[in-house]
Design a protein around this nucleic acid. Structure first.
Length: 294
DNA sequence: GGGATTGTTTAAAC
DNA sequence: CGTTTAAACAATCC
């Protein structure tokens, strides 16, 4: 397939040198949904074409089968579930998970290397949606219903169901450490490494503290921290906590809102103690040893 | 070239 | 059974 390159400045090189954490979590996915929704609702999918022979980008079916499932289907809505982008078709759902480095673009820039392109979605009006993903961990899924995804995912942290009492009750009976628990998509859907570190710092909780040892009062603070963080990040198009690029080189401020993530060896913004980086559940974890004690 | 990076899944161990 | 740990996986960068 011949790809027409328009020149659009791509700041991803600068970005990758300064700060490589570009992982889409809930607010970033929400931002992407808001970005692509007005562009693709009403269009009809003509084809979904894996690039560079990378057929495994289609997680649920082989390319031929996938084609028969989405071809000629119109798009009625775009929404989010956890970190999944959910494209509602006239029948069935096309889901996209960006994983670590996935990006959706309507146009490619000169700096977008063809080998980083994993999928092109062609629409009936001649436009395309490009799935660029230089690590190629992102995936596309087709499901007839959302049941399979709902079975895998837990509560939506911004839904009315996610109340402070919900969290209090669930923590009370959990023997798991807070960090792996909050990272578990089956527990709460949408939190990733960055927001979990930020939320725990905000609530002054140690990532290795066991759920059942968290007081109801502390659980309430954690609940509030999680929701406040997510809301603030969405308000700022996912760029408040991390610098997330979406669309054609769109970006925003970054770093200034990061309280603890990636701030190891720097001073805690609350107490001036030095932030340290430890490993919890095999993940890089940032804490203030003074504010967050076991 | 080994290690670090991620979210997810699966399997084994406790 | 619930939980923990680990490994595997995908690919790339330094």
């Amino acid at each position: 397939m011949n790809i027409f390159h328009k020149y659009i400045p791509d700041f991803s090189l600068i970005f990758s040198i300064n700060f490589r954490k570009n992982m889409p979590e809930l607010p970033e996915v929400e931002t992407v949904v808001g970005f692509i929704k007005p562009e693709i609702v009403g269009k009809t999918i003509m084809s979904v074409v894996p690039q560079n022979g990378y057929d495994k980008v289609l997680a649920t079916h082989d390319p031929a089968k996938f084609f028969t499932l989405v071809n000629s289907k119109s798009i009625s809505d775009v929404s989010r579930r956890g970190k999944y982008i959910v494209i509602h078709l006239q029948k069935g759902f096309l889901l996209i998970h960006l994983r670590m480095t996935g990006r959706l673009l309507f146009e490619l820039s000169q700096n977008d290397k063809p080998k980083h392109l994993t999928t092109i979605i062609n629409f009936d009006d001649g436009t395309q949606l490009y799935f660029k993903d230089y690590r190629k961990f992102g995936r596309l899924y087709y499901f007839d219903t959302l049941d399979p995804i709902n079975q895998k995912l837990g509560i939506e942290p911004l839904s009315p169901d996610f109340t402070d009492n919900w969290l209090i009750d669930r923590l009370e009976v959990s023997k798991r450490q807070l960090k792996p628990l909050l990272l578990d998509q089956k527990f709460i859907a949408g939190l990733g490494n960055i927001y979990v570190d930020e939320a725990l710092w905000s609530a002054k909780l140690h990532p290795q503290q066991l759920g059942s040892t968290v007081s109801p009062a502390k659980a309430r603070v954690l609940h509030n921290s999680i929701q406040a963080l997510l809301r603030k990040a969405i308000e700022n198009q996912g760029t408040t906590i991390i610098n997330f690029y979406f669309g054609e080189g769109k970006s925003g401020n970054f770093r200034e809102q990061l309280q603890v993530f990636n701030r190891q060896d720097k001073k805690c913004l609350r107490c001036n103690e030095k932030i340290i980086k430890i490993r919890v559940a095999q993940r890089g974890t940032h804490i203030c040893p003074k504010c967050q004690k076991l």
